[in-house]
């Protein structure tokens, strides 16, 4: 097993490029591509020799640099539209660098603000208590995807397997289902898996519901809890509105 070390010196290839530009005191609008490409590659080489996790993004920018360099070497195309004459192959990269630099600055400015729980404090946060609605339930256990799959299987198993061949006039999309679930959750605060399915237990609906819940869990928009084994699975909104 090899060890991979991630060094967070550079936040990505653009960050490395900006660093090189600053280090060489280069005008960002007039980057000497040959020099920068050479230095960029020697950095990549160094990172590789240190066995640092060299993300693919670094290689993407490396190829962009080479591409620009080769374009600069080619003589300008003849006869093809005059307006293209002034097009600098570096322009796109410069634009990207400027944009990234602006946001880097924005991030620093945000970080300079008096941050809650770092520079300013509000009254001690209360101990988080579950809402009173489910106090009667046994302790709720957060469920993971596997329990959800089990519940899904149970419902499918309980289905009348004689399925009608149907051409569904009602088109259902995952997005619709997700929105529907989120809407009901915001209205009702909590909802059980069975509630969501209702009594309309066609396979399509069950599958879409299940996929929607998985998606929502993945996005951390809902949390699923179960009261004991085989208890009802309840969903709660996880993200503030």
């Amino acid at each position: 097993m090899s060890y991979e070390i991630k060094l967070d010196v550079f936040e990505g290839p653009l960050d490395l490029l900006l660093y090189l530009i600053r280090k060489n005191e280069i005008d960002i609008y007039n980057i000497p591509i040959a020099l920068i490409t050479e230095q960029y590659f020697s950095y990549l080489e160094m990172m590789r020799s240190l066995n640092l996790d060299l993300a693919g993004e670094y290689l993407v920018l490396a190829s962009t640099l080479i591409h620009i360099k080769s374009k600069l070497l080619l003589p300008p195309a003849e006869g093809e539209g005059e307006e293209e004459e002034g097009e600098d192959p570096r322009a796109e990269l410069v634009q990207q660098l400027l944009e990234y630099q602006a946001f880097k600055e924005a991030a620093l400015r945000l970080d300079d603000r008096p941050l809650l729980e770092r520079d300013v404090f509000k009254r001690g946060a209360p101990v988080e208590e579950p809402t009173t609605a489910e106090e009667t339930d046994d302790a709720l256990v957060e469920v993971d995807v596997f329990e959800l799959v089990t519940a899904f299987r149970r419902i499918i198993a309980g289905l009348d397997l004689k399925e009608d061949l149907q051409i569904d006039a009602e088109k259902m999309s995952l997005t619709d289902r997700i929105n529907e679930i989120m809407e009901r959750l915001t209205e009702e605060g909590q909802i059980t898996f069975a509630d969501l399915l209702g009594d309309r237990t066609d396979r399509r609906r069950i599958i879409y519901t299940f996929l929607a819940i998985l998606e929502l869990m993945k996005l951390r928009m809902v949390r699923a809890y179960q009261s004991g084994s085989f208890g009802a699975i309840r969903l709660f909104p996880a993200v503030e509105g």
Binding site: D8, E11, G12, P13, L14, A55, E57, V60, L61, Q96, E99, Y100, F103, K104, A106, A107, L108, L110, D111
Partner: peptide, 26 residues
Amino acid sequence: AAMETLAMVAYRQPLVKSEIDRIRGV
């Protein structure tokens, strides 16, 4: 990295992830 991403969301919202990926190159 989180601060940069947050800055992009804050200043450019509403935006999609690919936009953030594009600006940060990561």
